[in-house]
Lab assay of single mutants.
Amino acid sequence: TTQFTVHSPEQAEQWKEYAKQKGLEVHVQKKNGTWHVTIH
């Protein structure tokens, strides 16, 4: 599991796309103005 924080919805979307291409599961949670992205 990879977990990191991004600071814009655009970055979060890019990671979603990346994960989809790799066939991975991605979870994005918005918290205090940042987005926590978890890739399984």
Rank of each mutant, 00 (worst) to 15 (best):
T1H: 09
T1V: 14
T2E: 07
T2W: 15
T2L: 15
T2A: 11
Q3G: 06
Q3A: 09
Q3H: 14
Q3I: 12
Q3N: 08
Q3P: 03
F4Q: 02
F4V: 07
F4L: 08
T5P: 05
T5K: 08
T5A: 08
T5N: 06
T5R: 07
T5D: 08
T5I: 14
T5Y: 13
V6Q: 01
V6C: 05
V6K: 00
V6E: 02
V6Y: 03
H7Y: 14
S8R: 04
S8M: 04
S8C: 04
S8T: 14
P9C: 09
P9N: 11
P9L: 15
P9T: 09
P9E: 15
P9F: 15
P9V: 14
E10F: 08
E10G: 06
E10D: 08
E10A: 09
E10Q: 10
E10C: 05
Q11G: 05
Q11F: 05
Q11V: 12
A12Y: 05
A12M: 08
E13K: 09
E13S: 07
E13V: 06
Q14A: 14
Q14G: 07
Q14H: 12
Q14Y: 15
W15G: 01
W15V: 05
W15H: 02
W15I: 09
K16V: 15
K16P: 00
E17I: 10
E17P: 00
E17M: 07
E17N: 09
E17H: 08
E17A: 10
Y18W: 15
Y18R: 03
Y18G: 01
Y18K: 03
Y18A: 04
Y18I: 06
A19T: 02
A19S: 04
A19H: 02
A19M: 04
A19V: 03
K20R: 12
K20Y: 09
K20Q: 11
Q21M: 11
Q21S: 13
Q21N: 12
Q21A: 12
Q21V: 09
Q21H: 10
Q21L: 13
K22P: 03
K22I: 09
K22F: 13
K22M: 15
G23L: 04
G23R: 04
L24R: 03
L24H: 04
L24Q: 04
L24D: 02
E25R: 12
E25T: 12
E25N: 10
E25L: 12
E25C: 13
E25K: 12
V26H: 03
V26K: 00
V26N: 01
V26W: 05
V26I: 15
H27K: 08
H27Y: 11
H27N: 09
V28L: 05
V28K: 00
V28M: 04
V28Q: 00
Q29E: 15
Q29N: 09
Q29K: 10
Q29M: 11
Q29R: 09
Q29L: 12
Q29I: 14
K30Y: 15
K30L: 15
K30W: 14
K30M: 14
K30N: 13
K30V: 13
K30H: 14
K30Q: 13
K30F: 15
K30I: 14
K30C: 12
K31F: 13
K31R: 10
K31G: 10
K31Y: 12
K31P: 01
K31T: 11
N32S: 05
N32M: 05
N32K: 06
N32F: 06
N32L: 05
N32I: 03
G33P: 01
G33N: 10
G33L: 04
G33T: 04
G33R: 04
G33Y: 04
T34C: 06
T34I: 15
W35L: 04
W35H: 02
W35D: 00
W35I: 05
W35F: 08
H36A: 06
H36G: 03
H36F: 14
H36T: 14
H36E: 14
V37G: 01
V37I: 14
V37P: 00
V37A: 01
V37H: 00
V37K: 00
V37Y: 01
T38L: 07
T38S: 06
T38P: 00
T38K: 04
T38A: 04
I39W: 03
I39V: 05
I39E: 00
H40M: 13
H40T: 13
H40V: 13
H40Y: 15
H40G: 11
